[in-house]
Design a protein around this nucleic acid. Structure first.
Lengths: 344, 344
DNA sequence: CTGAAAGCGCTAACAC
DNA sequence: GTGTTAGCGCTTTCAG
């Protein structure tokens, strides 16, 4: 690439017959003391020369990079996942409003092995990190427990530690879905959950199980299946559940992606949704509307969670707060994938 | 945030009884001249102190940020779009392998208005930019024509200029889809295209139109509808087309997102896909498999395009090449959303 | 084989 | 009001 020698603050100072300091003061709006005449002259020169302060030099001085990192788990094409994509969109929006830049990292073996999650801070790449999709196996996040590096878990939490988080109430989500299916009249109910090591998945399942129990309906181990958080997994799990108990009338699925997979395989195995089997998802992703049938699902406000997490991170970075522990409410979104069970 | 005074190279020099230079040389593997004893001593100290060179200081010195920016258009929750997400995943993978960091930008009015696409370079935020979803209205990209700033258009191009691009062959894509539908026996065919100002959409339509024309089938203006690149748009467009000409037997849709919307609305209006209407998409996104019916679509290798574009960008940045103009081949992926038309 | 010193571009304390 | 100057942490030339 052509090496364009950039204009620097010295050039501006020289060209406008002012000193470095004066130029710097004017540019940083600390210019109460500067005569408006000088100010005008400097600003004109800046304009004429097309001067732009180097972000790197400013960073060296301020010891701030102005960047935050978004850390996503290593799943297949992580950024193509609507769930993480939605969070990233939200985070970018907040960051943009606050004047921060956003960088992307994938928490793969190499990243964690070389302790990049700490290096990002120590080498001044970033001022803060938002961690997404953290599981109870991801012990590396505990390095953030001392609060020395600004970080927040987005839409997860880990039991028994002092990590910052902003999340939805997944226990409630499970309970709401459970009660909804019960009210429709279902009694033979199964659940497809996400990974065992994901805290939100555990809480979702607990909320769901507890809600059923309140009405005397038990969720047996054979009525639980892991959907691996993928469409394929959801599809396979639904078939496994139906095979094990063909009398099932409803399935609650831990996220919409798996629910879409489940509906797909149920229909391919000649079962009608919702007439034969009701399906309720969780998340309310954009695609939920375009399923056939449109998906009834628990709406989790992940866009808001992303925006909030990002704003809190900035407050953490700027020392305005010390801890973040926020849980946002969820609600049911009724569409057409769940109805009352057929009379046997 | 607690201000942790970071260990710097001076500390290492002092603690290991060596000079700044020596430490720097060792760390940068320019240490042929350093005695292995000194080297060991320094490396041990680095380890003990947990020293990490500041990326910002290195950047100030090298005048390189080590970052590239991904620029996406301002659509609703852009990062939650699987198409852009797939490209981002690919780019991140390549960048990671090459030791570059990735930052995210949205080309909204504010961004373009304040000429951030140039500022990113001029303020040393980035060494290069990958532009995604560029339309023929996005005149600002012409600022990159002089080649002074490393940039590549990803999976688009603009006619009549000297911008770098890596893309798929959309003209071929249109032709392949057209010939496929003709071979199945369709003659009453319509198309839902993306935005008029998107070059790839124009080429797709041309390829499709030309292929039909070769077999004496005309695509009239009334058989064309804009699907706005959204599910909703695709859904509305399909209904509009069917209303205008209920005898249609096939629709080619400019991307899978719109195709999924189209299938959804066709089914809701009591038309069977593919028995009554065949639908062919374009892109072959991951979700295409989980539609009902699974989507027959033109496979465009966008992951490869993303990876290649990123690698080329680095070659551009490092001055190894001057220009990039690459077009990747596409192919048909047959699933179940298109079959021969029913005999009238 | 090692070290002193200049400089990357900017900010801010301190003089004048 | 404005300018001088000392860093911020690193790399690299050049002397020793």
């Amino acid at each position: 690439m052509a090496k364009r020698k950039a204009v620097n603050i010295k050039d501006v100072a020289r060209e406008s017959n002012a000193s470095l300091t004066t130029v710097s003061l004017v540019l940083n709006k600390r210019d109460e003391r500067i005569s408006s005449e000088t100010r005008e002259r400097i600003l004109a020169t800046v304009d004429r020369l097309g001067y732009r302060p180097s972000r790197i030099a400013q960073g060296l001085q301020s010891q701030r990079s102005g960047f935050i990192a978004i850390l996503v788990p290593q799943i297949r094409h992580a950024f193509a996942d609507v769930y993480f994509g939605e969070l990233i969109s939200a985070i970018h929006e907040s960051a943009n409003e606050a004047g921060y830049k956003v960088m992307l990292e994938v928490a793969n073996a190499q990243f964690i092995g070389s302790r990049q999650h700490l290096e990002l801070f120590d080498r001044h790449y970033v001022d803060g990190i938002l961690c997404m999709g953290i599981t109870n196996n991801d012990d590396y996040v505990c390095d953030f427990e001392d609060g020395a590096r600004a970080s927040i878990l987005v839409n997860t939490s880990r039991p028994g530690n002092r990590l910052n988080y902003v999340r939805c109430n997944y226990r409630d989500a499970g309970a709401i879905a459970g009660r909804y299916l019960l009210e429709l009249g279902h009694r033979r109910i199964a659940m497809i959950h996400g990974a065992r090591e994901v805290q939100t998945s555990i809480e979702l399942q607990q909320g769901f199980t507890d809600a059923l129990k309140e009405s005397g309906v038990k969720l047996l181990p054979r009525q639980l299946e892991d959907g691996l958080y993928t469409e394929e997994g959801g599809a396979a799990a639904a078939l496994a559940l139906m095979k094990r108990d063909p009398s099932l009338t409803a399935i609650f699925v831990g996220n919409d992606k798996m629910a879409i997979g489940a509906i797909s395989s149920l229909k391919q195995s000649r079962r009608r949704v919702p007439q034969d089997v009701s399906v309720v998802g969780c998340d309310d992703i954009h695609q939920a509307v375009f399923c056939d049938p449109p998906l009834t699902t628990v709406h989790t406000p992940i866009f808001d969670v992303g925006k909030t997490a990002c704003c809190r991170l900035f407050e953490l970075i700027e020392g305005k707060i010390k801890r973040v522990e926020e849980t946002h409410p969820v609600r049911m979104t009724v569409r057409q994938s769940a109805v009352a069970p057929r009379q046997p």
